[in-house]
Design a binder for these strands. Structure first.
Length: 443
RNA sequence: UGUCCCAUAGUGUAGUGGCAACACGAGAGAUUCUGGCUCUCUUAACUCAAGUUCGAAUCUUGAUGGGACAACCA
C-alpha cells in the first residue's frame, strides 16, 4: 500500500488527527505529512515496526479522502505503535493493525464469502471493500444484520464485562447473565436456545425480543424431556389427623407424562407432609381450587384430603394445616367418582431432602436498560431483587443423586437445574423458569 | 445540520409486480391427577403522500418516524 502511494506515515498527535478529521457535517484537513515520499514512508514504517518510536508518536494511515462523507474514509489509521508483549513475537514487532484494516484481509485470506456482522459496521463496509480492492485480494463481502436485543437485559460485551468486573453479578456464568455459560448454568438447553434463534429470525431492522420468548422455547423443550418431581419451595406443614402416626405408604408416580419411556418411580407418604404456602388460604376467593377450610383437594398421586383447620403463630402466620384423608382414594382416584377441582403437590416430611433454591428475576427493571435519563447509566436500572435465595426447600428423594446441570420439572412450579455449587450434602437448584400460571393471571 | 441504514398484526419473521402468511402473545372455550401440556375458535398489520402500472406491501420520488457514524476500540 505504501509502495502504491496509498498509505503514509503521519506524525500528528492523537489530538491533531482528531481535530483534522473534521466532523460528520464538515470536511477534514489533509495532514502535513500526507505527501511524504514512498521511500521515507517505507523507512519510517519499518522503524515503527522495530520499535524506534514511542506509542502514539507515528501511525500509518491509508490515503483516501479527508473530505469524504463517510468519516471512516477520511484517511483511516491502518497501524499504530504498541509496545506491548505479544504472545508470539514478544517485543520484536511493535505495530498492530486496526480492526478495519485487518478485517477484510483476514476474511480474504480465509476465503470467507459471507462475513456477517452487526448493523453498526454497515458504514465501515466501504472501507472494507476499499482495502480489498486496492490489495487486489479475494473479494470477501460483509453483510450486516440487526443485533439481537432482549427485554430487561443488556447484550453488549462491554456492558456485560462491566457487570462482571464491578461485581454486579458473580461472574460470566452468573445465571442471570445472557451469556452462553450463564444460560447454561441457569438451565437453558442448547436445543432451546437454537429453537429460540430459529423462532425469532434475523433481519436488518432494529428489534426487541420479549424475554418470555426465550422462556417459551425452554418450556417447549423441557416439557418433553424433563423428569417431573415434587418439591416444596415455601413449606408449611400439613398434618393428616385421621392418619396414624406410624402410617407408611408407597405410591407410584409418573416421571414424565409426555414421555412414557421415562418410566415410573415410588414416593413415600405419611401423616405429615409439606405443602406450598400458596396452596393454602384461610379465606379464599371462589375460584381458588386449593386447600381452604372445608374444601377437598387431591394430593398428587396420593389421596384426597379435606382441610379442617389451621394453626398460626403469634404473628398470625399459618404454621400447620390440618386435614383428614379418604383412604379409599389411594392413588388419586375416588371409587365413588366424585371430582375435586384442585390437585396440589407435596413432599413427605418424614422422608425428604432439604436444600437451597435460587430464584432469578430480570437483571434490569427497565425493558431497555440503556434508555436512561441524562446523567444516569444502564447500571441505574439494575434490579436489586434479581436474586432470591430460598434455603428451606424440601425435595422428594428422587433428586438425591442429581449431577450438575440435571434438569427437572418441579410439578406446578417450573423447570429447575442443579447448580455447580450443589453437593450431595447441600443441594442447590436454579430455577430456570416458571410454568405458565393462568391462576396468577386470573388473580 | 450532513451521509448511510431501517419501516408489514402487540412482538418477531415471511411475502420483492398478481388472494398479506407463520410463530409467539392476548381473548373465549374444551380437556386434564400439574391452574402445566394438548385441542378448537377469535383477535390483530403493509407509516404517510404523490407517481409508474391493467394491477404496488413490493418499483420511483418526497415526507414522517426509528437507528448508526466524528477511539491510535472492536
Amino acid at each position: 500500500m505504501i509502495r502504491k502511494g496509498l498509505a503514509y506515515v503521519d506524525d500528528q498527535t492523537n489530538e491533531e488527527i482528531r481535530i483534522n478529521r473534521g466532523t460528520v457535517t464538515s470536511p477534514g484537513k489533509d495532514s502535513p505529512y500526507r505527501n511524504r515520499s514512498v521511500e521515507e514512508n517505507l523507512r519510517l514504517f519499518e522503524e515503527m515496526k522495530e520499535g524506534k518510536y514511542a506509542d502514539g508518536e507515528k501511525i500509518l494511515r491509508a490515503k483516501i479522502d479527508m473530505a469524504h462523507n463517510n468519516m471512516n474514509m477520511r484517511d483511516p489509521i491502518m497501524y499504530r505503535i504498541l509496545h506491548t508483549n505479544h504472545h508470539r513475537t514478544g517485543d520484536k514487532w511493535c505495530i498492530y493493525p486496526m480492526y478495519d484494516y485487518a478485517h477484510g484481509e483476514s476474511d480474504s485470506i480465509e476465503r470467507i464469502t459471507h462475513s456477517i456482522c452487526t448493523l453498526e459496521f454497515d458504514i465501515h463496509r466501504p472501507l472494507y471493500d476499499w482495502f480489498i480492492a486496492q490489495l487486489g485480494i479475494f473479494p470477501s463481502h460483509q453483510y450486516e444484520f440487526a443485533r439481537l436485543n432482549i427485554t430487561n437485559t443488556v447484550m453488549s460485551k462491554r456492558k456485560l464485562l462491566q457487570l462482571v468486573k464491578e461485581g454486579y453479578v458473580t461472574g460470566w456464568d452468573d445465571p442471570r447473565m445472557p451469556t452462553i455459560c450463564g444460560l447454561r448454568r441457569r438451565g437453558y438447553t442448547p436445543e432451546s436456545i437454537r429453537a429460540f434463534c430459529e423462532d425469532i429470525g434475523v433481519a436488518k431492522r432494529d428489534n426487541l425480543i420479549d424475554y418470555s420468548r426465550l422462556e417459551g422455547a425452554l418450556r417447549d423443550d423441557l416439557n418433553k424431556r424433563a423428569d417431573r418431581v415434587m418439591a416444596v419451595l415455601h413449606p408449611i406443614k400439613l398434618v393428616i389427623d385421621n392418619c396414624p402416626d406410624d402410617f407408611v405408604d408407597e405410591l407410584e408416580a409418573v416421571n414424565n407424562p409426555e414421555d412414557e419411556s421415562a418410566g415410573k418411580r415410588k414416593i413415600t407418604f405419611s401423616n405429615t407432609l409439606y405443602i406450598e404456602q400458596d396452596d393454602f388460604m384461610e379465606d379464599a376467593p371462589k375460584k381458588y381450587f386449593r386447600l381452604t377450610p372445608g374444601q377437598e383437594v387431591r394430593l398428587r398421586y396420593a389421596y384426597y384430603v379435606k382441610c379442617v383447620s389451621c394453626e398460626k403463630d403469634a404473628n398470625g402466620n399459618v404454621t400447620v394445616v390440618h386435614c383428614t384423608y379418604d383412604p379409599a382414594t389411594r392413588g388419586g382416584d375416588s371409587p365413588d367418582g366424585r371430582k375435586v377441582k384442585g390437585t396440589i403437590h407435596w413432599v413427605n416430611a418424614k422422608d425428604c431432602i432439604e436444600g437451597e433454591v435460587r430464584l432469578f428475576d430480570r437483571l434490569f427493571n427497565a425493558e431497555v436498560p440503556d434508555k436512561v435519563e441524562e446523567g444516569q447509566t444502564f447500571l441505574d436500572n439494575l434490579n436489586p431483587e434479581s436474586l432470591t435465595v430460598l434455603t428451606n426447600c424440601k425435595f422428594e428423594n428422587a433428586v438425591a443423586n442429581a449431577e450438575h446441570l440435571k434438569k427437572y420439572q418441579f410439578e406446578r412450579l417450573g423447570y429447575f437445574s442443579v447448580d455447580y455449587d450443589s453437593t450431595k450434602e447441600h443441594l442447590v437448584f436454579n430455577r430456570t423458569c416458571t410454568l405458565k400460571d393462568s391462576w396468577a393471571k386470573q388473580k
